[in-house]
Design a binder for these strands. Structure first.
Lengths: 200, 200
DNA sequence: GTCTATAGGAAGATAGAC
DNA sequence: GTCTATCTTCCTATAGAC
């Protein structure tokens, strides 16, 4: 039987996080007020402080949760094996993951500067873990003679930037569906690392 | 002979724009106050309004000036000729231009959402002009059989995202100098479009 | 061209009733 | 667990003196 009033602990908390995620992504952390977040949830501004000590902690929580999800999802998706197989899997994984969570991704990339120094360090450390994934794959690929890269480090950040860019233009119902986009980017990734037959 | 006091019209105006550019890039439009901008210039907050009608117009001015510079600089740098030559020139131009103006570039990419609808339309129109440049080059390259791309449109936005990413990590005095970075990215661009001999 | 002062509003966060 | 009311601070923008 339902509680007397609008209680439901364990339900409002996630709704606060979801509302903050949506609003931060749309307007930016600094431009969103606690009152707006409360209104989106359907509670008063004062009640928000039962779910977060302050606005900054809300942002940190969103960022860290997102990066934790990202890292554990790749641990699950990583096929291992040869570098070409792993690169294909990584490119497709990155596209899928990013298209599925546009708001969280947008915040993670755009609001780093809104973090307090301590929170920034915590987030940056996890970001670096993710960036190390393609770098390892590319170094292995070069070492195995399957990829040709003057600088695997630069190539790996270039790869991530290229893949992440999908979120700036992809919309459901457009010219291409997700599977098609995934395939196109996986193919571009192969060319990027010199693992595709060229046209010379 | 110098004017009596801290006058110097035609000098404070540009300083206001420069201060706004630096601060908007560092902290974001919404997080920067007119008082901060004034303090950076060394004047009172009230005096700012002799140089801009409001904060939003300051942002629009920065964005439109940047995009005007970008488009005219490419018009100057475009070598014409065959698609491979033009792609190499475009990649190098984009890297150079972006590394030379990190603040303006950062604002142009991050603060689109801070623009009023009318200002957004004006800026977006110029952005599309720039995005059309690599798209044309890639289509010509595919038509000439010099590039291999399943989707030149997606490849061109992927290319721009990859190149623009340089601003997230490059710092003067690091492991690589600008010329080296330019060369690495130009090479990656060739691979991306399938115009480089692969390692297969 | 810059200053000080201020109008008018909205922000983050807290207190205490229910 | 949520509400209303409020404290305190900061904001954009304007007015008028010099």
């Amino acid at each position: 039987m339902a509680r007397p009033s609008g209680s439901d602990a364990g339900v409002t908390g996630p709704r606060v996080h979801a509302a903050a995620e949506r609003l931060f992504a749309r307007s930016g952390y600094a431009a969103v007020s606690m009152r707006q977040i409360a209104a989106e949830v359907g509670i008063g501004a004062g009640a928000l402080y039962h779910y977060t000590p302050d606005k900054q902690t809300l942002l940190r929580r969103l960022m860290l949760d997102h990066l934790k999800d990202l890292l554990s999802a790749w641990a699950e998706a990583d096929p291992g094996g040869d570098p070409i197989t792993r690169l294909d899997a990584f490119a497709r994984f990155h596209i899928r993951f990013h298209l599925d969570r546009p708001d969280a991704v947008f915040i993670a990339y755009m609001e780093l500067r809104s973090l307090d120094p301590d929170n920034f360090s915590a987030v940056e450390a996890r970001r670096k873990c993710y960036e190390a994934i393609p770098e390892t794959i590319l170094r292995d690929g070069v070492a195995a003679g399957r990829m040709r890269l003057a600088d695997p480090k630069v190539a790996s950040v270039a790869l991530i930037a290229m893949l992440t860019g999908v979120n700036t233009w992809y919309r459901d119902g457009g010219r291409l569906d997700r599977a098609a986009v995934e395939g196109i980017y996986a193919d571009l990734a192969m060319g990027l690392v010199g693992a595709r037959r060229g046209a010379g």
